Amino acid sequence: MTFLSAKTSVALPDPHAIVAAFHEHFAEYMTMTRDGEAVHFEADYGNGTFGAEDGRFAARINCVSENILLSVKAMVAEHIVEFSGDTSLDFRWEGDGAELRELPNLFSGRVVRAYNLTPKMRRVVIAIDEGIERLMSGGLHVRILILPDQARAPVWPHVSKTGAIVWAQGEDEQARRVYTIRSGDIKRGEINLDFVMHEGDDMPGAHFGATAAAGDIVGIVGPGGELPDAEDYVFAGDETALPVMLRMAAEMPAGKKLTVYAEIDNENERQEVSSKAQVTWNWLYRDGKAAGTAGLLQQSLRSHGWNGHEGLHVFVGCEKSEARIIKKMLGDEAGLPKTCLHTAGYWVRGANDDH
């Protein structure tokens, strides 16, 4: 496999503490190993090293694509600032994409139409100005940029010299939310985004989904996140994970085995399932209980007949604290290693956080 590579270093009062902070923070999401003063990470999209050298924090990363390299560089740059507490740091990247200032994975689009799939799931169809082929082939998830005022010209983000993404501020600031491209039509140049209609205030994603009108402009950054290759898949998630679970099932080839535990409010929230794989789809109904409180996903996964983890990939997407409980349970009780398990906290109960 061919990788794109980049490296940077920055003088810090305690670079060893920054290495430790990276290790602690990201050990929950990827495989990380200590080697003296350095920490190595391995992920399905690449690898890299964080180390302390001569009073400097150093990062070296290798990624499978330009978009992923850009995202990882931005993540590293933002966390260097966060962990050090110093917003004035000035450092540069060497290697692939070092001179990049415009986001190569930024797309603009306009709403074509919107309609309800179920009482609580609304679809927004967006026509992409250009680059629909790249948008539909590089991953499952995108970050949508919701304009504060459709009457104002958008101020799109760009890349700083440190590799961090610079977002518009003040009256031009855009709400940013991660969604799955549920499906797309390359010939028509359109993508479909599905929005769960949450109740509550300050939920720009749900508000956009509910009010999007033909002609509204939206920015899109991505895509990223692909389904790892395996033979046996187990998915579990609530409504927020339903779009990605349905898309992964739809794109899964024949010969694969898939078991899904999908928690929804009631039968009216069911959607049609399409797949060439051997699928066992289980709908779990909360019947009026609040999302994130029913415990149906945990019960179902505890009762699942686990037969080892060779050739297995497990995906869990739900409320953040519930996802953490399930992750611990699957590790402690089912003995599943991190390498075959991906959990995502798509929302936080009690917070103004939508998906």
Rank of each mutant, 00 (worst) to 15 (best):
V273P: 12
A249I: 12
F3C: 02
G109S: 04
I18T: 13
R270M: 11
S321A: 11
L297R: 09
S183F: 03
R302S: 15
E190C: 01
R270I: 02
S275R: 10
G46T: 08
F22L: 03
G139R: 03
P104Y: 07
R176D: 00
D185H: 00
E251C: 04
G95C: 12
F50M: 13
A38Y: 10
H198E: 01
K320G: 03
L145S: 04
E226Q: 13
L312W: 08
S84A: 12
R286T: 01
R247I: 01
I325E: 09
H313A: 10
T2W: 12
I68H: 14
S160V: 00
G255V: 01
A334N: 07
I186M: 01
G209E: 05
V348D: 02
H79Q: 03
R101V: 09
T259S: 14
H158V: 03
G170W: 08
F41I: 05
A168Q: 08
T8K: 09
S275M: 02
F26I: 07
A6Q: 08
D265Y: 08
D265M: 11
E239T: 05
G209I: 00
S9Y: 06
V348A: 14
L4S: 06
H198Q: 05
F50D: 02
G189A: 05
D216F: 09
G95W: 11
Q174K: 10
H40N: 12
R270Q: 15
H141N: 08
L106P: 00
I80T: 09
A213H: 09
C318H: 08
P13R: 10
C340T: 14
L117M: 03
L100I: 01
F57K: 08
Y29H: 15
V72F: 12
Q150F: 05
A250R: 15
I128Q: 00
N105K: 15
D232L: 03
E310K: 15
A168N: 05
T211W: 03
E78F: 11
K256I: 05
D229V: 14
N352R: 13
G224K: 13
A27E: 10
A262G: 12
G85R: 03
L117R: 12
N105F: 11
M203K: 15
E269I: 12
E66Q: 14
A27P: 00
T162V: 07
D354W: 07
V64C: 13
R110A: 07
N62E: 13
W283D: 00
V81P: 04
Q298H: 13
E42P: 02
S9E: 13
R113S: 14
S300I: 06
I61E: 01
Y261I: 07
P337Q: 07
M136F: 00
T2Q: 15
E24V: 06
L70G: 09
K257R: 15
D54Y: 06
L103T: 00
I146S: 04
D353V: 07
D149W: 10
V244Y: 02
E133K: 14
R302D: 12
Y261N: 07
E319H: 11
H207V: 11
A254K: 15
A344I: 14
A210V: 01
G55Q: 04
G345D: 07
P154V: 02
I128A: 00
D202R: 15
A6P: 07
T162W: 02
G308S: 11
H158A: 04
S88E: 10
E310I: 10
D332W: 00
